[in-house]
């Protein structure tokens, strides 16, 4: 479970990138975090993962405060950053072994084989990540993140660059993971994906949380027969 309690963050005095954000991502659900460019999504995710400090408020991951108990909080999640150009000088297998060492994964051979075969990058494991295509880099980062079977998945734009099969696989795994009582928190610009797989969504704009709830609740509140795209545009004030 991920709990955001009155989170605020300012980069410059007087301008809040994230302003008093409060919501909970429950176990057993896929939560989509939506918002236009510059809305504060990345800042929120960076605070959630401990990359950015929090000015005000508290973020709890399975009860562990990311600011006060960072190590235990970090052990509860797997994070896929929006930029897959990471650890480029390492070979795929070296990266996965490195992640397995960090998270002390016991049956690493089996997990590496299962994950990489599922994402169809097993044959490329002996090559450096810098030689991978954008999609392959995204896949190897996802494999590294999922290998230790974290309870909470935090995925920043995870579908970007993935081919249809891998995208489908990842969505299936997200569903399976949530159905097993775990929590999936992901940001996306692809509203179709959010509409199809999210149990609940949060919409943020200009640092403020505008809506949290299921698609049905959103329709009840705004328009009965609108799509998520139409609702999103209306909520964020971008409707024509």
């Amino acid at each position: 479970m991920i709990e955001f309690k009155n989170i605020s963050k300012s980069y410059r005095k007087g301008t809040k990138a994230v302003d008093d954000l409060s919501f909970t991502v429950n176990d057993g659900e896929i939560f989509g975090f939506l918002g236009p460019n510059g809305a504060g999504k990345s800042t929120t995710i960076r605070m959630l993962t401990g990359i950015l400090g929090i000015d005000e408020g508290q973020i709890l991951l399975d009860g562990h405060d990311i600011s006060k108990d960072p190590l235990n909080a970090k052990k509860t999640f797997g994070y896929v950053a929006d930029d897959p150009d990471q650890f480029l000088t390492l070979k795929g297998i070296e990266y996965l072994n490195f992640m397995a060492d960090i998270y002390d994964v016991k049956d690493r051979k089996e997990k590496i084989e299962t994950l990489t075969k599922r994402f169809e990058i097993f044959d490329a494991l002996n090559s450096r990540i810098e030689s991978y295509s954008h999609g392959m880099r995204q896949k190897i980062i996802i494999c590294g993140c999922l290998m230790h079977e974290p309870k909470n998945w935090i995925l920043d734009e995870p579908m970007t660059g993935l081919d249809p099969k891998s995208s489908f696989d990842l969505k299936t795994r997200m569903r399976e993971h949530a159905d097993a009582g775990n929590c999936v928190f992901f940001s996306t610009h692809v509203l179709d994906v959010a509409e199809k797989i999210c149990d609940r969504v949060g919409i943020i704009n200009k640092g403020k949380l505008l809506f949290v709830g299921s698609l049905d609740e959103m329709k009840e509140t705004f328009k009965e027969d609108a799509t998520l795209e139409q609702l999103f545009l209306e909520i964020t004030g971008n409707a024509a």
Partner: peptide
């Protein structure tokens, strides 16, 4: 992908 993905087995 200037280096090319190697097909060398593990």
């Amino acid at each position: 992908s200037s280096e090319g993905v190697s097909s060398k087995k593990l």
